[in-house]
Design a binder for these strands. Structure first.
Lengths: 196, 196
DNA sequence: CGCGACGTTGATTTGCCTCAACGATTGTGG
DNA sequence: CCACAATCGTTGAGGCAAATCAACGTCGCG
């Protein structure tokens, strides 16, 4: 029951690995502990890793011209995160990736990822499926943003990230669903009155 | 200069094919002409094809509980479109795909796509890159929806789909950027006053 | 202890929606 | 080929959801 357990189970949901292949895979990983508020990637830098969260939580977000954060994604334990644009193109991106609490992660560098593809080709399939699932989730979020009210988007958020609803500062959730912290607070107190 | 020209050039932007491989590829395609307003996919059906637009234009959209359309994507010539969720999972999806004008398309069935992977493995790479690019574009759109005003989103639309700005009914554009047709009309006349 | 980050609440404003009425265009069946 | 319907775009009046601005209480942490 090693600390690789979570990430190996994550992979096993999509592809089956032999013990040898598991060893090759974990050999490419770099373990890293991250302090609260520490950056893993800053706007304007080139993203050189995919990051898998073991425990804690990260967020990926941009900052607009007025200084407001807009959260693209959270990464609680068992999730992957990266600036996909920057990682694919190996060019500077606009995303910040940062811990919302003290965390422990594994990082797979772009270089190691390509070595991994050569040594264990079925990882091509793994990351392809990951990308496909992510695309589907993002399409759903666009449709939600177009068709749902803030309350409904919050309800969806609670379903999608049940573990985060109470673990995260409210302003982070507000930013994710696309409202101001003030409005989010009012909305929440309104919800508590009707359904305790 | 055959009618396969456009789709072969589209593929060539990402992978290089030998004449033999080109022949295999086009052998898997089904040509189809589509009348204006004709459906290529209806909500609740399983999506069994990727569709490439040669000329004309398609749209992918959902209908909400109040009967309003929300457009997830347009597919002008040289673009691919499908209900990714339904295509990947081979389960019923919520997307409608429909022509916004008389169109000509090529369709690659999921079955043929898998045969193609076997016979020309580099197509794995092609569709992976397509998915990656699509993911990046969708992430950008989410961030735009979170941080930009309707006017700014319209400006982005004009940059992204210059050929569609004048070819498409205004209500379709309004639906894509997430405002009502009435508001879109007012916004547009406001813009025309300041910048003729 | 005191300072910053967070959450709450209220007053006011605004971006966008709703509803309704009205031309202009398109297209379609008789 | 025309009449009529359907679709589309425009405009105006009024309404609502959410933003903005500001004040204040609370907590955790250095």
């Amino acid at each position: 029951m090693s600390h690789f357990d979570l990430i190996l189970k994550n992979v096993a949901r999509i592809i089956h690995l032999s013990p040898d292949e598991e060893r090759v895979f974990v050999g490419f990983l770099e373990e890293k502990s991250v302090k609260n508020r520490q950056f893993l990637l800053e706007e304007g830098k080139v993203c050189r890793h995919s990051t898998f969260v073991c425990h804690g939580c990260l967020k990926g977000y941009t900052v607009d011209k007025n200084g407001f954060e807009h959260i693209l994604s959270f990464a609680p334990p068992d999730w992957w995160i990266a600036d996909m644009f920057s990682l694919f193109a190996q060019r500077p991106g606009q995303l910040n990736i940062r811990a919302t609490e003290a965390s422990m992660v594994f990082q797979l560098s772009k270089t190691n990822q390509e070595l991994l593809y050569q040594q264990v080709p079925k990882f091509e399939r793994f990351f392809r499926v990951l990308t496909e699932n992510s695309l589907v989730a993002h399409q759903q979020r666009i449709l939600d943003n177009l068709s749902l009210t803030a309350e409904e988007r919050y309800a969806h958020f609670c379903q999608k990230y049940p573990s985060l609803v109470h673990a995260l500062p409210q302003k982070e959730i507000a930013s994710y669903i696309g409202v101001t912290p003030e409005f989010f607070s009012k909305m929440r107190s309104r919800l508590l009155k009707t359904s305790p």
